[in-house]
Design a protein around this nucleic acid. Sequence first.
DNA 1: GCCGTTTTCGGCCCGACTGTTTTCAGTCG
Length: 613
Amino acid sequence: MPREFRKPIDDADPAAALTNARIAAILTEIADLLDIKGESSFKVGAYRRAADSVARSGVDVAQAYREGEPPRLKGVGGSIGERIEELVTTGQLPYHEALRAEVPPTLLELLAIPGVGPRTAGEVWRTLGIATLPELERAACDGQLRQLKGLSAKSEARIIEGIAELEKRPPRRMRIGEAHGLAERAVALIESLPGVASAVAAGSVRRWRETVGDLDILVETDEPAEVLEALRALPVIESVEAGVRGGADRSTLRLVDGPQLDIMAMPAGSTGSYLVHFTGSAEHNVALRHRARERGWTLSEHGLVPLDDAAAQPMTFAAEADLYAFLDLAEIPPELREGRGEIEAAEHDELPRLIERSELRGDCHSHSHWSDGREPLEVMVESARAAGREYQVLTDHSQSLGIANGLTPARVEAQRRVIGELNERFAREASDGQTPDGADAGFRLLHGTELEITTDGRLDYADELLASFDVVVASLHVGRQQPRRQLMARYETALRNPHVGIISHPSGRKIGVRPDLDLDWEAFYRLAAETGTLLEINGSEARLDLDEHRIRAATEAGCRFVIDSDAHERDDWAHLDWGVGIARRGWVTADLVANTLPRDEFITLMREKPHRW
DNA sequence: GCCGTTTTCGGCCCGACTGTTTTCAGTCG
C-alpha cells in the first residue's frame, strides 16, 4: 500500500479548533518536513510518536495545556511539549511555519508515489528545485532524474507509472463493512485453492479498525510458489502490482475494482508469529519486540532468534497464545493491539473480557417508513425478530426533523397503536407455540423516538409525551456549527431530562465527511455519568460514534453505553457487528452495555433514571 | 528528540526487496 496521500495542512484558517487530531496533523507534518530535509531519523520518529500519542489521547490536549495541566503523554518530552504549549496558547507555531517556508509543503504530495520516499523527494527538490507532482512528472519524462545519485532511467519509468496510477486510482480507505465483506470473500476464494491448509485475514481488518486501506491475507501452505501462481491466474485478480512486493512467499495483487491484497504464505504449523506480525499494529509489534529484546531475543514474523546467536534457527510457535505466553503475556485480542497499554494489562493479567456480539440481546435505535427508514415498520420488525433478538426499539424521528418526515404527536399515538397490535400478535403466537423458527418467543417491539434537540436548545416533544415512550434516544442533527457553549447547553438539557435515556451518536461525525461537534468532552462525559444517561455506540459504518478513543475516555469518566444499529433497512442490522467491533477496540466489557440485559430488565432500567445497574 | 530494572548518555524494531551496487541506502509494511 502506498503511503496515505497527505495533502499539506490547510492553514487558511488558523482559528480552526485545535483538536487533538489537528495538533497531531501539525506534528506529523513537521516530521515529514524534517524527514525531507534530511534530519536524523530518530528526531523525525520522535515527532511521529508524539503525534501518535496526541491523536490517541483521551483528554483534550489543547484544553489541558491551557488549564496549566499538560497531560503525561508518551513520546512528548520537554522540547515537543513546549512546542505544543506555544501552539495551543498563541494559536501559532513559528517553528512549523519556518519549516514550511524552508521546505515546500507540496513536496508531501510526492510521497504518495510508490517508491518515492522522503530521501528521494528531498534530493529532487534540492538538486532540481522540483516541489510538485507535475514538475516531477515532467522531469521524469525529460530524463532529468537519471542524473541524480541512486536514480536511473528505470526509476524514472517507475515514477511516471506511479503518478499515472495515482491519478487513475487515488488511494482510499474502505469502510469497515466493505472491508470485512471483501476479506471474507478473498479468504473463501484462497481456501478453495489446492495446497492451501487455511487462510486468514490479518492486518487492520482483523483488528476491526474503522477504516481499512488494503487487505492482508495469510495463507498457510507448504507449497507457496504453486499457491501464489494459482492465485495470480484467477479472473478476479485484476493486476499484479509491479515490484513492490514480489518474492517466493508473498505477492501484492489487486481485486478487480477492489482493494490491494497483500498475500503472505506461512509454513504450516508455525503460524503464531506470522499472525502476530501481520496483524499488527506497528506500534504493538514494536512494543513486543522491545519486550523480546529485554529477554534476550529478537522477534520477527519467523519467530524468535537469540540476540547472541543471529544464525540460529528461529523458535516458532503454532499459535499466537504460545508466543504471548513465551513473553509472559496473556493472549491479547487483536482489537486491543494498538500500543495503548495492552501489553502492560496482559503482563498483569488485567486484560478486559471484551464484549461479544452474541451478548447483545436487543437494539435500541432503528427506523421505518414512518420517518426516514427505507422499509415498512412490519418488515423491519419481522426481520429483527427473525434474527433472534429479544427486543428491538423503533425510534423514528421526532416532529421538527421535517426532512426525515418526523412524527407529530398524533402520528406518535397512531404508531403506538400499531406497535401494540404487533406485540399482541407476538404474545399470541408465543402462547400458541407458533413463534417462527429462529425468533425469540419473548420478542417485543419497544416504542421509542429519536428525539431532536432543536437549535434553540429545546426538546422536540413535551415531557408528558416523552414519558409515554419505552425508550427516548436524543440526538442533535441541526445547528451543528454552533459554538461550543451553545452545543453543550443543548446537550445538557437533554442529559438532565428524566425521560432521555440515551444520547445517540454523540459526536455527530461522519467518517471522512464531517468532523466531530465542538464539545467540552470531559464535561459531557461527567454529565452523562452523573445523570446516568447512556451514551450510544452507533454502529452505522459511516458514523461509528462514539469512536474508540472517546469510548475509553467515557468509560473512565464512569459512563455506560448501548450499542445500536441505527438501521434504516434490514441490511443495516450488520451495523451491530461494526458497533461491537469498535466497542471492543474501546476496551468495552459486556457489563458496561445496557442492551446486553434481558428484555424485562432493560425495560425496567429505561423507566428509571439515572440508568444504573 | 525521547528515554531510563542497560537512567543523564547512548541507544532508539525487523525483514524483504530494489536498485545501483562492490557493501549499502532507500522504501515498504
